[in-house]
Design a protein around this nucleic acid. Structure first.
Lengths: 252, 252
DNA sequence: CGTTGTGTTGATATTAATCAACAAGTGTGG
DNA sequence: CCACACTTGTTGATTAATATCAACACAACG
């Protein structure tokens, strides 16, 4: 069971905390208990929450990077494009995820909602002042960025060295682990044998560096071998977790 | 000319500053002018500088992550392995690069010196205190991590979607730009037409997700097409930069 | 002067991409 | 309610890119 955090912790949500924004479904920042409840209204005043419908883009690669974002619900796909249309999805950003941190005048990637999302927007120029005001934030951001880096390196291993079967197995297990790039510090949500896939086959292919045909065929083959079941295209049951894990880690 | 930083800046070295450690060749931290010169001795006391010979590993994937590191000279390769020996080099770390930041009990990658290196080692348990003492450090680390993330995403695009030719062209241009993962905040070193390759073909292959044979053949072909010259295996001259750039960006 | 490590080149195999057809589901309008 | 288009996913046949297997060239080194 892969776990890459020393001290797993859970991001607090409005499920058990008062909504600080009054507009936003969850805390605008996933800072664990680093920010005191009494500070939340002040923070919330700086957050500009908004909704994004499925399929709608909210960050365009190459546009001026004026804002940074915190996902409060739903899932986004992050991607980079080549001029001829080839696309690489670099990750899926879920609740608690930060976007647009890099010191750069333009966004290095695009972002599009997979399902309905709630997002808090913050002014990049004011980010510095925001951090001065909430020192705990900087620590949180550093942790998030460091952990994302680990995930990115794992994905490089997948893209550079794993076979199609291994990629799909890795993908399914990561989804089962809730490691979909949810709150970056938040890992080890109980593993489930049932994986929901809100994204299309095209998205999965662009994430794994494959074609949709190869994704489809590989899933079919994994089903034939009784490693998974596919009740609906958007839902997959992991039947033989040990086999999938050894596949994902490059054995066999 | 690709540049992804809003405000390029240069890491200061002992070339024009006194050696703070007395042991270490350059400032133990690449913090620009964030840390005052008078604070350097205090910082240097916490740095444990050491030398690593070429080919020697100084971080082992999976080992307890007790230290974090700052490269002061030389180049390291960072990599992840699969049990059967497949290897993915996730990056090359040069002067100013930070290693081992992620909140995790074990290192998620291995690191090995490409050429002779000088490295400062810092105790991870004391990192928190160190940051309290040098608040500028946290900002610097966040910037470095954010920018590395951008580089990592670019590499995912390369590994997932580019052809062998495009990968080599991207690699050569990045090296020419000095974007080899030197000081993460430090980009835009003057581009040279002459690229030094301190690493072996095996390293290049493992970095680009190819085999050594494909790397060799592709370089030979680029030479036949007059895009590059190969005076020695470790040195490549970029003859047709526009063509290489359009190749690297996925045109043609 | 052989040995070893590194890089190149050639012949062949294999994986995944491409091209193509079809099936299933969804929504629309008649 | 049912044609109809349209989207998404699956499956089959073939191709193309890269990996694999193998031989050889060359330099560094003992």
């Amino acid at each position: 069971m892969a776990t890459f955090h020393a001290r797993p912790f859970v991001v607090e949500t409005s499920h058990h905390l008062p909504d600080p924004c009054g507009l936003c479904d969850v805390r605008p920042f996933s800072v664990c208990s680093a920010i005191e409840d009494r500070d939340l209204p002040r923070l919330a005043a700086l957050a500009h929450p908004f909704t994004v419908e499925p399929g709608r883009a909210f960050i365009t690669e190459g546009d001026p990077a004026d804002n940074f974002f915190n996902v409060t619900s739903g899932t986004a796909k992050l991607f980079k494009m080549l001029p001829d249309g080839r696309r690489q999805i670099t990750g899926f950003a879920g609740m608690g995820h930060f976007l647009g941190l890099a010191v750069s005048s333009t966004y290095a990637f695009g972002a599009e909602a997979v399902d309905t999302m709630r997002i808090c927007r913050f002014s990049r120029p004011r980010l510095r002042a925001l951090i001065e005001d909430f020192p705990a934030l900087e620590r949180r951001l550093l942790e998030a960025a460091s952990n994302e880096l680990v995930v990115a390196q794992e994905q490089m291993l997948l893209l550079g060295r794993k076979t199609a079967r291994e990629r799909l197995a890795s993908f399914l297990i990561a989804r089962a682990d809730g490691q979909t790039l949810g709150p970056s510090g938040c890992v080890h949500i109980a593993r489930s044998g049932r994986v929901r896939l809100p994204m299309t086959r095209t998205d999965i292919a662009d994430y794994l560096g494959l074609t949709i045909e190869t994704v489809s065929r590989t899933l079919t083959r994994l089903r034939a071998e009784r490693l998974i079941e596919i009740p609906t295209p958007a839902e997959i049951v992991l039947r033989d977790m040990p086999a999938l894990e050894s596949l994902a880690s490059g054995l066999n």
